[in-house]
Nucleic acid binder design. Structure first.
Length: 148
DNA sequence: GCCAACGTTGGC
DNA sequence: GCCAACGTTGGC
């Protein structure tokens, strides 16, 4: 089963890239998602899948790469059994953050969920989209692909 | 700060 | 099960 790619959206004021990096290899629960579609994507995730870390609202930029380190499990922060999340850890910062403007300006990325359905907070990224954004961000392909 | 788009809720 | 009303998200 091959690795998949995702995008995790957050607001800087709620959970910043600096917060995520500070958690190191311990990672952090991606909690607080209250949307079934987004939750269902997290249920599809496998350990080792990778994702972009995107800042919404004022920033509108992809700043880093994260890796999924647990499969979906009930959130520790709520008793509500409906909500599950994965844990993720920071892998690396993008040498050149990639802005939403850049993504929208690139015809190769016109089908990204980020463009098509801007409100979805956890979303899948196609492999070719992943490579293109990594390239725009200054990462060589071997650095943004899962190791095995 | 505005508002379009989307998701959820609840009355019928 | 439909859909109007409402709440939230996030780009602008």
């Amino acid at each position: 089963m091959s690795k998949k790619y995702w995008l995790f959206k957050t607001e800087k004021s709620t959970w910043s890239w600096e917060n995520q990096v500070a958690r190191g290899d311990t990672g952090e629960e991606w909690d607080g998602v209250r949307n079934y579609q987004a939750r269902n994507f997290m249920r599809e995730m496998k350990v080792g899948d990778q994702g972009f870390f995107y800042l919404s609202q004022r920033d509108r930029v992809i700043v880093g790469i994260v890796e999924v380190i647990t499969v979906a499990h009930p959130e520790s922060s709520t008793e509500d059994q409906r909500w599950e999340c994965v844990d993720i850890k920071a892998i690396k910062s993008l040498p050149t953050p990639v802005s939403l403007d850049q993504i929208k300006a690139d015809p190769r990325l016109a089908e990204m969920v980020l463009v098509k359905n801007s409100r979805l907070s956890v979303q899948p990224v196609k492999e070719d989209e992943w490579r293109i954004v990594c390239d725009l961000g200054g990462l060589s392909p071997e650095h943004c692909r899962p190791l095995d």
